[in-house]
Write a protein that binds this DNA or RNA. Structure first.
Lengths: 333, 333
DNA sequence: TTGTATGCGTTATCAG
DNA sequence: CTGATAACGCATACAA
């Protein structure tokens, strides 16, 4: 590894001069600056960011923690985070917890020890010990898509109540009276909001749901399929299902197929997120669209904006969703 | 930030003793070790991995560069890399180049400056200057899913010739004589291999392809859709298309739908990769399956195994694909 | 078993 | 404008 010392020796100046020249300090003569840069180029010098970070107290890197990178919803968020970070010269360390709360804690610890300047979390749960303890530290962070109710933190989320209302009212307007709900994890706020709104909207329209039509899953296709199979096998099955995210809805689609139920003839189905696969011709999933990429961008913009600042304003951003009606919903019967 | 000095002061020992106790050195009395660990716990000490890496010359982090994290093919590779890295206590810095060769270079430079111990590249192209220059450095790296022909490097890839043969022969066996091909980028080896094999197999069966049926795209859904639209609008259009990856195939599916062509009645379609969405009931894409997750794992296992070693054996691993016949292929007419 | 001294590669402070 | 010196937080060779 070639260091500034090597360059210093080569050029015949001191290491400090090299450091200054390379970081574009104004108090360097044009000539020395040029000679140093030439030598650096020639020797193939690459700055050791570790050493630099150690003395500057900033690593110019942020951490991003997601529960499932193979869900394009999170991949899109990651893309948004990456775009903004890259544009600002920041690196991003992406960690995938595959839904494990232990891994989340372990990754947060790792990232903090690696001295990341800030954190974007897409893994928060209701009583998330990780989020809570993180809020006691100096490390700035922001939650995206999921919030932690009892801790005051910055966040960028979608309006889940509004989105769920759009979904359920759409089904009711089509004439459905028997509407089921397959949620995400019980400890995820958006999951609860969508479910609470589902119940509320039903009530407001004088409808009620059989308890057997309502369940939590875990936002994966496999869980959606299993839950769908259970609910759709009931003697008294719903004519419509609101799935708490698209991946779950795709699982329900699988279940419907296995049970020889046609969508939307025998079953109307609404998802949530509008991931890219939802718009495929064969899928044409009716869903509630969220500005996923934008959520990642906004979160990261805020995070970068507060770095190094002393006291800063938190960001509480709620983005509005919209309904995208495609071909998985129709009048019942 | 609490450092080993703070602990040393608290316990009344020297910083070196603290360092030793915390890294589980055997030459420390049980009692001192315990006192130090207690104090560390009490003060909320977290080791500064930057400082540690600086002196140890190893950051215990690897870099992963992918062209498109929203393609579940790469997300799956990333998952494999993450699993192995996490199990070994390594962090992984994931960078998304969105297909830009400049970004690839920029990320490689960034990662090297951040002193990653090694690199996994899923972005290699045929004459990739980044890969070539990387091979001149000390940083160990391995290519996954894509290789760079003129540089001798370790890699883990699928057998693209075998896979393409499976796909094309399947179509021929079904009775198709007019078979089109929509490839990936022209500068990606697997893309070329699949295309070359496509031509070869046709020839071996006494078939030929209209030039208008063959084109390169860029492995995205949008490009697949556009290419599909073009080819399927031809007066003399093929009865079957082999798409060089699933995402492209899904785009072709869109195009077929827009042109009111039924699959598989009017068009048979084969993809490549077997991403999770390919098996959805509404999709049921016939495709060539690759062990994606495993590729990420194997690459990372090798990478971690060579870290720190002096001279090590390269890994040239070619995994065999298999054909998964679903519902997008049928006899023509 | 513990402490002292030194260095990892860089930046910052303070003289000159 | 430039150079010596110290410091960032940690690990380790060498002494004790």
């Amino acid at each position: 590894m070639v260091t500034i010392k090597d360059i210093a020796r080569e050029v015949g100046v001191s290491p400090s001069t090299v450091s200054r020249a390379l970081s574009g300090s104004p108090l360097i003569s044009d000539e020395t600056g040029e000679r140093v840069r030439m030598a650096a180029q020639r020797l193939g010098y690459e700055r050791n960011e570790l050493a630099r970070a150690l003395v500057k107290g900033s690593s110019e890197a942020i951490g991003l923690i997601v529960p499932d990178i193979t869900n394009t919803f999170f991949a899109d968020i990651a893309r948004g985070v990456g775009e903004v970070a890259h544009a600002a010269g920041y690196g991003v360390i992406l960690c995938n917890t595959i839904g494990s709360i232990d891994r989340e804690a372990s990754y947060i610890s790792l990232l903090r020890r690696k001295q990341v300047d800030g954190l974007v979390l897409a893994t928060a749960t209701l009583n998330d010990p990780s989020t809570r303890s993180l809020s006691q530290t100096e490390t700035p962070f922001i939650l995206v898509s999921r919030i932690c109710r009892d801790v005051d933190t910055s966040y960028v989320i979608g309006n889940d109540r509004a989105g769920a209302r759009l979904a359920v009212e759409h089904l009711i307007e089509l004439g459905h009276r028997k509407i089921g709900f397959i949620g995400g994890p019980a400890n995820v706020q958006s999951s609860r909001d969508r479910r609470a709104t589902y119940r509320k909207v039903l009530r407001q329209h004088g409808l009620s749901a059989d308890d057997a039509w309502v369940c939590y899953a875990d936002f994966t296709q496999a869980a959606g399929r299993e839950a769908g199979r259970r609910i759709l096998s009931l003697e008294n099955r719903p004519t419509a299902i609101f799935a708490a995210n698209d991946v779950t809805a795709l699982g329900v689609l699988e279940a419907a197929d296995e049970l020889d139920l046609s969508v939307p003839e025998d079953l109307s189905l609404v998802g949530y997120d509008d991931i890219s696969y939802a718009s495929l011709p064969r899928i044409q999933l009716t869903t509630v669209a969220q500005p996923t990429f934008k959520m990642g961008k906004i979160a990261t913009e805020w995070l970068l904006s507060v770095l190094g600042k002393e006291d800063t304003l938190p960001l509480y951003r709620v983005l509005e969703p919209h309904l995208v009606v495609r071909s998985t919903t129709a009048r019942p019967g």
